[in-house]
């Protein structure tokens, strides 16, 4: 499984691997929003948590269909399914690779982007914390959606439609953590809910994804 993780990360950073895709999308949104809503710092600061979370979510969505479809097209997925690796492990390590290539860079870059959005100082900790705990759920839920649509050519649209409703709870709790942080309220409960969603998704969804992949590979 480590071999698969290593390979997926190598592929992500090589040419055409889509490593910077999510990050540059995030950057574009965050740079464009102040142009759209005007340079008023107070307004920007108020909408910053929501914008940052929506941008992170869409950035994740952008690279989801690469998780399985590339391996399906070149036959690797068939070969992985016949390999000694359990398919659940294959799904889990591909989701982890997706998070390391897409989610983690967003978490690390979030303070810089928050600055561009004039997020008040108190909001920095909560936004980074909420992205750190929330983006794994985005990758794991996304891997499930990618597994559902793996046999479908150009399945990106269907994938987005399937996955977006599943992303809503993560978005609500994630943005709520950041918003409460900005307003100086306690953000314990939504943070716990967010962590709960991530861990539940990580524990349960690989099994569902593997079952779906088995059906799709027939």
């Amino acid at each position: 499984m480590m071999a698969l993780l290593r390979r997926d990360l190598t592929l992500a950073v090589r040419a055409g691997g889509g490593f910077g895709l999510g990050l540059s999308f995030f950057l574009i949104v965050v740079v464009l929003v102040p142009f759209g809503v005007g340079p008023e710092t107070a307004l920007l600061g108020r909408i910053a948590p929501g914008i940052l979370w929506v941008a992170a979510l869409l950035a994740c969505l952008l690279s989801l269909d690469r998780i399985f479809s590339l391996d399906f097209e070149d036959g690797s997925l068939d070969l992985l399914a016949t390999s000694p690796l359990p398919l659940e492990g294959v799904v889990a390590s591909k989701a982890v690779a997706h998070w390391l290539a897409t989610g983690l860079p967003l978490v690390i870059a979030a303070p810089v982007f928050a600055l561009l959005m004039s997020l008040p100082q108190e909001g920095y900790g909560p936004i980074v914390l909420s992205l750190l705990l929330g983006t794994p759920a985005l990758s794991v839920i996304g891997a499930f959606g990618a597994a559902l649509t793996v046999g479908i050519k150009r399945g990106g649209l269907l994938l987005s439609l399937l996955v977006l409703p599943l992303y809503v709870p993560t978005l609500i709790f994630g943005a709520e953590v950041a918003r409460r942080g900005v307003e100086g309220q306690g953000y314990g409960p939504p943070l716990l809910m967010l962590a709960g969603i991530s861990f539940a998704a990580l524990a349960l969804l690989p099994f569902a994804s593997a079952a779906v992949l088995r059906v799709n590979l027939r």
Partner: peptide
């Protein structure tokens, strides 16, 4: 079983 299909599961950037 070791399976080899029409397509080889080769990654072109590796």
């Amino acid at each position: 079983m070791a399976y080899a299909a029409h397509i080889d599961g080769i990654k072109s950037t590796l």
